[in-house]
C-alpha cells in the first residue's frame, strides 16, 4: 500500500485551499474515492460515445443468460430434480450466478483483460509511476455500465424464482446472501486477476478471457452434480463451485450446515491473499516493453 506523502498529492488537491486556511491533505479513503469518482466519469463518457454498441453488448449478455435458462428448462422436461435441486432452485442458482458474475464484470472484468495489453505495449510504465496503489488503478480503471443492467435482470429472475419457490427469507438470510455474493465477487476478481497477471510472464495471453469463461461456467451448476477429485479441486483449489451455490443455498433454505459458508468465506480470504502475493511477484518481473 503506497503511503501518502505530501508530494504524492495530485496538484488539484494541493491547490484547493481548505476553508479553515490550514493546508491539510485529504484522508486516504477520501483521496481514493475522489480518484474513483473521476474514473467513473471518464467511463460513463466513453460508454456513451458508442451508444449503439453499449446497448448491443447488453443484448449479447442477456441472450446468453436466456440461453442458460432455456437449458435448465429443457433439462427439467426430462427430470424432476438434479440431486436434490428442483427446477426453480436451479433457476435461482443460475440467477445468483449471473448476478455475481455481472456485478464483478461491471467493476473488474475489462480491467483484468486489459492488463495483458498494458504489459505488452509497455503502458504499465505510466501506471507504475503514478503516486498511488497500482493494483487499485489497474483493477478499477474502467467501469462496465452495461453489466449493471444485466445484473438487474438477473435479480429480477431471482425474485421470480424465489416467488415460485414460495421463499420468505428472513433478514439474516437476505443480508447473509448479499454478503456471500460479495465474497463471490472477491473470488471472481482474485482468480481472474491472477490469470491476468500471468501476462507478466508470457506477454501473449489472449486465452485469458477464454479460460475465465470456461472456469466460471461451472459456477452456475448445482454442486451436487459433482463428486470426487473434480469437486475437491473446484471447492478447495479454485473455489468456483462455492461462489454461487452457497449463497443460493442460504437463500433457499438448503444449507445443511454453517460449515459451507465458513468455507466460502475462508476461501475468499485465501484467494485474495494469494492473488495479492502473486501480483507483487509478477510486477517485480515487469520489464518495460517500450524502452
Amino acid at each position: 500500500m503506497a503511503r501518502l506523502e505530501d508530494d504524492m498529492i495530485p496538484p488539484e488537491a494541493r491547490s484547493r485551499k481548505p476553508e479553515d486556511g490550514v493546508a491539510r491533505p485529504p484522508s486516504l479513503v477520501a483521496r481514493y474515492l475522489g480518484i474513483y469518482g473521476a474514473l467513473w466519469k471518464t467511463s460513463v463518457t466513453r460508454e456513451m460515445s458508442f451508444k449503439g454498441n453499449f446497448i448491443l453488448w447488453i443484448v449479447v449478455e442477456l441472450l446468453w443468460f436466456a440461453m442458460q435458462l432455456c437449458f435448465i428448462g429443457v433439462l427439467y422436461l426430462h427430470t424432476n430434480s438434479i440431486g436434490t435441486w428442483t427446477q426453480w432452485q436451479v433457476v435461482l442458482l443460475v440467477g445468483a450466478s449471473s448476478f455475481i458474475q455481472q456485478t464483478y464484470q461491471a467493476f473488474f472484468l475489462v480491467n483484468c483483460t486489459n492488463l495483458s495489453e498494458l504489459v505488452r505495449t509497455g503502458k504499465m510504465d505510466f501506471l507504475l509511476m503514478l503516486p498511488m496503489n497500482t493494483r487499485f488503478l489497474v483493477s478499477l480503471r474502467q467501469v462496465d455500465l452495461g453489466a449493471f443492467v444485466n445484473a438487474a435482470f438477473a435479480a429480477v429472475v431471482m425474485f421470480y424464482a424465489a416467488g415460485r419457490l414460495h421463499l420468505h427469507p428472513t433478514a439474516a438470510q437476505f443480508f447473509g446472501f448479499l454478503a456471500l455474493c460479495l465474497v463471490g465477487i472477491l473470488i471472481h476478481y482474485s482468480l481472474m486477476f491472477m490469470l491476468a497477471a500471468i501476462s507478466f510472464w508470457t506477454v501473449r495471453a489472449q486465452g485469458i478471457v477464454w479460460g475465465y469463461y470456461n472456469l466460471f461456467n461451472i459456477a452456475r451448476m448445482p454442486d451436487e452434480a459433482f463428486r470426487g477429485v473434480f469437486k475437491a479441486v473446484f471447492t478447495f483449489v479454485l473455489p468456483v463451485l462455492l461462489v454461487s451455490n452457497v449463497p443460493t443455498r442460504v437463500l433457499a433454505d438448503k444449507l445443511q450446515s454453517p460449515i459451507l459458508w465458513l468455507v466460502l468465506l475462508g476461501m475468499g480470504v485465501v484467494c485474495a491473499l494469494i492473488s495479492e502475493w502473486f501480483w507483487r511477484v509478477s510486477v517485480r518481473r515487469y520489464t518495460s516493453a517500450s524502452t
Partner: peptide
Amino acid sequence: NYLTRTLFSFIPLFAMLSLWRTIYAG
C-alpha cells in the same frame, strides 16, 4: 495458446457430463 484453450474447454465439458450423469442417476 491452443493447448491451454483445449485444456480449459475440458472443464465445462466434464461438468456437463457430470450433470447428465446425475440426472440419469436420479
